[in-house]
Amino acid sequence: MLDGRSQIKRKLPPRLILSAGWLILLGAAAMLAPWIAPKDPLAQDLFLGQLPPAWVQGHEPGYLLGTDSLGRDVLSRILYGTRLALTVALLAGSITCIIGATLGLLAGFLRGWVDIMISRAIDIWMAFPPVLFSILLIAVLGPGLTSIIIAIVVIDWTRFARVIRAEAMTQGAMDYVASAQVAGRTRLSTMFTEILPNVLPTITVLLTLEMGIAIIVEAILSFVNLSISTDDPTWGGMIAEGRTSIHQAWWVLVFPLITLFLTVLSFSQLGEGLKDRFDPVLR
């Protein structure tokens, strides 16, 4: 005999469809960039500089979103830029999440000296101004993908640790934790089987948010020219270049900016959407 109540189908929330749709599209674009990009993103052609997008007077066929001042195809550059953006988002986001959430969970649930040490570390960490800190780090580590990821992880793990610690502490006071102890579950096993499922919704939301933040941080670093080598196209780098020619060629600035905005928005909506759809307690 099966009771169907818990299996009531929840509709996919529209924001989940839209955000996941955009991110899947972006992921596909990143992977397929060499095949779908209409031009070589690095190919310069000074005769084709500052061509407008395809629906504006004076465009050239084949350059859908126009070209920048060096005659490089904007669409192709955005597509290639996606690769770096998503790599940073996924790697930096998940590493930050794993480190921060684990420390937060340990501190909040085990309490005692573990908590004292982790909380102290968080407090000290938060005393540093984050942007200065990251610029300093990159300056020391030298530019490059690994440096960006390390910088993001080092700065942002506290965000996870703080929130998850508080949440784990609240959950730890619930009687179901005492119940697990009476049933003979060990502390560590309780942390994973009882507490983790209850902080997972928060972790999901924070993780997707962090992925968005990672993209912004990467863009900022590229903007101030501290990201990877300047040749490879990055959204932040494109925005920086586009800013200088905003009056002659707005499209060089606007298209990467829109892509960036949609992506960050999608990441933040993805977390909420996943929670709406999959968290049993919201039903």
Partner: peptide, 14 residues
């Protein structure tokens, strides 16, 4: 074994 006073809080909501 113990059966707790507050039923909701003694059952893991998830």
């Amino acid at each position: 074994q113990m059966i707790f006073q507050d039923p909701m809080s003694s059952l893991n909501p998830r």
